[in-house]
């Protein structure tokens, strides 16, 4: 970003690191980074989010689970305002989400997002997908952005694909590129909206592995998923949603072994029957 950053931006944290949060030490401090307060969201008559309150601290990994239609994806998308809200407010790093325009774009640059359907730019190469944000939004020089992009692609295991088009990659590879594209912006927080739901079973793990590694490096993450294994392994907290409400919040071990609410018990029992 700024010139005085360049000195320690490159390889200081070693090749295993994703080089993401500007201050990895902050991960342990646990200050609130994302604050969702009294949020209500309607689609016409349908009440999609009901009085949602959620705080995500720096370095925390929050996994949102729940049956389909429970509002978990909607919640995830409100955090960078891909969905607008009807009431309440959302703050990221102390700043209230702007309405539209440049301020909103600037905020989104600090919030990485990974979609269920990857959404790689179909007309650009893998490398261009990753460099577009840094060059256009951060004003990085092309050569510099490409070097960083290649390093990121290498780390998510698709380095050799850098010059291909998205359609030439498997789903798992595309999703890892999407993660690299989001990381290239050095976001403060990463949102994952069902990142493995569109993947064939054998490709799910390669994406989850990248996410687990990211979590272990202290990235702040909000993950909407059906992967209970990931929730157990990487989550600091599980948020269970049903019918637009947050029904239960607990540490993963607590939630999976001893759910409090009937709706969570019911949901978990359905998962285990097959």
């Amino acid at each position: 970003m700024e010139s005085n950053d360049q000195g320690d931006s490159a390889d200081k944290r070693g090749p295993a690191s994703f080089e993401t949060t500007s201050n990895p030490i902050a991960a342990a401090t646990g200050e609130p980074l994302v604050i969702v307060e009294d949020v209500e969201k309607y689609y016409g008559d349908f009440h999609a989010l009901k009085n949602i309150n959620l705080t995500v601290n720096k370095g925390e990994v929050v996994v949102v689970i729940g049956p389909s239609g429970s509002g978990k994806s909607t919640l995830c998308r409100t955090i960078n305002r891909l969905e607008t809200i009807n009431a309440g407010q959302i703050r990221i790093d102390g700043k209230k989400l702007p309405e539209e325009g440049k301020a909103l774009a600037a905020l989104r640059a600090d919030v990485g997002m990974v979609f269920q359907s990857f959404n790689l730019f179909a007309h650009k190469t893998i490398l261009e997908n990753v460099t577009l944000g840094p060059t256009r939004v951060r004003g990085q020089k092309r050569a510099e952005a490409e070097e960083a992009a290649r390093a990121l692609l290498e780390r998510v295991g698709v380095g050799v694909q850098a010059d291909k088009m998205p359609a030439q990659l498997s789903g798992g590879q595309q999703q890892r590129v999407a993660i690299a594209r989001a990381l290239a912006m050095k976001p403060k927080v990463m949102l994952f909206d069902e990142p493995t739901s569109a993947l064939d079973p054998e490709m799910i793990n390669e994406v989850l592995d990248v996410m687990v590694q990211l979590a272990s490096e202290g990235m702040t993450m909000v993950v909407v998923t059906h992967e209970m294994g990931f929730a157990r392994k990487a989550a600091d907290r599980v948020v269970f949603m049903s019918e637009g409400e947050i029904v239960e919040e607990a540490e993963p071990e607590e939630f999976f072994t001893n759910p409090k609410s009937d709706r969570a018990k019911d949901f978990l029992s359905k998962l285990l029957t097959h």
Binding site: N80, L82, G101, K102, A105, A106, L107, R108, A109, D110, V111, G112, M113, F115, S117, N119, L120, F121, A122, H123, L132, G133, R136, V137, A178, R181, A182, M185
Partner: peptide, 27 residues
């Protein structure tokens, strides 16, 4: 052009005009 393309562009911080000129229009 699928809506996801514009959403992905906005999600990395592109504002409206570059989202259109860099991502949506070429496709």
């Amino acid at each position: 052009v699928p809506l996801g393309q514009a959403e992905a562009a906005r999600a990395i911080g592109l504002s409206f005009v570059p989202t259109m000129t860099r991502v949506v229009m070429p496709q």
